[in-house]
Write a protein that binds this DNA or RNA. Structure first.
Lengths: 233, 233
DNA sequence: TGTACATCAGTGAACGCGCGTTCACTGATGTAC
DNA sequence: TGTACATCAGTGAACGCGCGTTCACTGATGTAC
């Protein structure tokens, strides 16, 4: 497995720079103190989750990946769940950031910005399966870890705010609440991401690109907001 | 934990009758041969998954629940994954059955039958979390276990056939393919079920009933199929 | 009806393994004076 | 600038545990004759 030294940061995320202690001159050796163990453990957890699913992560192996004794992680995390919860929290932050960036203030226009957000969600599921699994698959109870709920809400609120702007472009009569629109779009997007996109053993095949499927679905859904009346039976 | 004897069938599923060997006169004792070990192991797996998630299931504990030595399961399943795959397969069969029943041949009319199917999907996620987790959450690769893919397809085809019938009730011009409709509805339903319905530690709160959310979403989506033209910007 | 035999489901002991967590400890860091 | 000391991050050995899997076995079942 990749790279020199005992660490395996590889393509896990962007905090590679923090893996080697700045004080060791970049040689890869370190002294008694790791210097960045907390970050290193979070990176190791990501790598393990990506490789074996959220259940395949263990504190002992994360410590080994970080080149540290099995007792060391307990200086930074109360237990395995606390570490996983922190991974999930950071995942929500990254997702919120990605969605925010894709929405881009509603430019060039709310609809296409909205579609961009959907694509960003799928891209996140595809490119960050470890975060995605920690956020949605895992044994972590959202309520049990303070901050996690807030972080999750922050990500959803990006979607909700966008839905608010988008909804305002549609005729007012019979328009459903923006919150509901946001929930529908989230559910469809999340369903597509979970069933067809994330690189999991249980991923399903799809006779078209997931992006196209989502775009068509969102367009059809939103089209109804222009529709004059209720569906006819 | 419940009930007399060493077995814990409880409310796991309907095969309770098979737990006690018919040859022991219902006393709960059994001889050297279990008589229904395969079924008992599947039931035990369901119970364990329900209690601790798909990762919390182990062959040894399933054997213990079934009142049998840890080596016995290997007479019936090659390994733990084979057992889990069988659980998933049966889950798809049960889901297909539930959807078929809810669809009820499209009666009383395609739209309301379609809505009933959606509710049946949510009910399945709510009431059979163990099956649901084994089917969608797990480490089981659909392709690796013959029959599993077919079983999964069978369930989806119920939805697809229904979409076919439903689509035929809408104006033909600009109507998307029934397969696509089915995928959109599946994704939205699955998203709602996964995020808001299944009783998991990571379930989210919802400001309305999941059933109402889904019904509104499906109605809005289908409404667009009556709509005269593409969405206006 | 009885007997010999093949089949096969379950036994129980054993193996090596990795886990989570604890503990008293130790070595590095940084700060007060 | 130097020294004493508090703080704290990481050590390494140990614990008890449960796991998956194997093995030669044994007892029950059913079948041939």
């Amino acid at each position: 497995m990749g790279g020199p030294g005992k660490f395996h940061a590889r393509d896990v995320n962007c905090s590679y720079m923090s893996w080697s202690d700045p004080r060791d001159g970049g040689s890869g050796r370190r002294g008694y103190h790791h210097g960045n163990l907390r970050e290193a453990l979070l990176d190791a957890a990501l790598e393990l989750i990506a490789a074996k699913g959220p259940a395949g992560f263990t504190v002992a192996e994360a410590a080994r990946l970080a080149g540290v004794s099995p007792a060391a992680p307990y200086r930074h995390f109360r237990d395995a769940d606390a570490l996983l919860a922190e991974v999930a929290l950071r995942g929500f932050d990254r997702l919120a950031e990605a969605l925010q960036k894709a929405w881009n203030g509603g430019a060039p226009n709310p609809l296409s910005a909205f579609e961009d957000m959907g694509r960003a969600y799928l891209a996140f599921a595809r490119n960050e399966p470890a975060y995605y699994a920690a956020m949605f698959d895992s044994r972590i109870a959202t309520e049990a870890h303070p901050g996690l709920q807030a972080s999750s809400d922050r990500a959803f609120n990006v979607l909700r705010d966008a839905a608010e702007v988008l909804a305002a472009t549609f005729p007012k009569e019979r328009r459903p609440p923006a919150l509901m629109i946001a929930l529908h779009i989230w559910a469809m997007t999340h369903g597509i991401a979970s069933l067809f996109v994330r690189p999991d053993p249980s991923r399903r095949k799809l006779p078209m690109s997931a992006e196209d499927l989502l775009e068509a679905g969102v367009l059809l859904y939103l089209q109804s907001l222009n529709s004059p009346g209720p569906v006819q039976r």
